[in-house]
Computed example of a mutant assay.
Amino acid sequence: MIVIGLTGSIGMGKSTTARLFAEEGAAVHDADAAVHALYAGEAAPLIEAAFPGTVRNGVVDRKELGMRVLGQPEALAKLEAIVHPLVRAAESAFLEKARAQGAKVAVLDVPLLFETGRADRMDAVVVVSAGEAEQRGRVMERPGMTEAMFQSILARQTPDAEKRARADVVIDTSRGVEDARAQVRRALAKLSGG
Rank of each mutant, 00 (worst) to 15 (best):
A182D: 14
T116W: 08
A161T: 14
K97D: 14
Q183H: 09
S174W: 08
G25M: 08
V35D: 02
R181F: 11
V127F: 03
E80H: 12
H84M: 09
A167N: 04
I2A: 12
A49L: 02
V105F: 11
F150E: 05
A148L: 03
S152P: 11
A18N: 09
G194F: 15
S129F: 04
Q183P: 06
G5D: 06
V110S: 01
P85I: 07
L76M: 09
A130N: 06
T16K: 07
V169P: 00
T7F: 05
V126W: 00
A37C: 08
Q101T: 12
G53M: 10
R121K: 12
P159T: 11
A31M: 08
E141D: 15
T17I: 09
V126M: 01
E178C: 10
V110M: 04
G66N: 02
E132H: 11
L112E: 13
L70T: 01
R175H: 14
L65W: 02
E48N: 10
D123H: 12
K63I: 12
A22L: 04
G53V: 04
M145V: 06
E132D: 07
K190Y: 12
E48G: 06
V170Y: 11
Q101R: 13
V83E: 03
E96T: 15
T16W: 06
F114E: 01
A75V: 09
V169G: 02
R185W: 06
E134D: 08
R88G: 15
A165F: 03
V177T: 12
R181N: 13
V87I: 15
L154A: 14
K14E: 06
L112Y: 14
L46V: 13
R181Y: 10
A130C: 15
R164F: 09
K97C: 07
K14N: 05
R138P: 08
R118A: 10
E23I: 02
R19A: 13
L76S: 09
T7A: 05
G41P: 05
E162K: 14
A187V: 11
K14Q: 04
F94K: 06
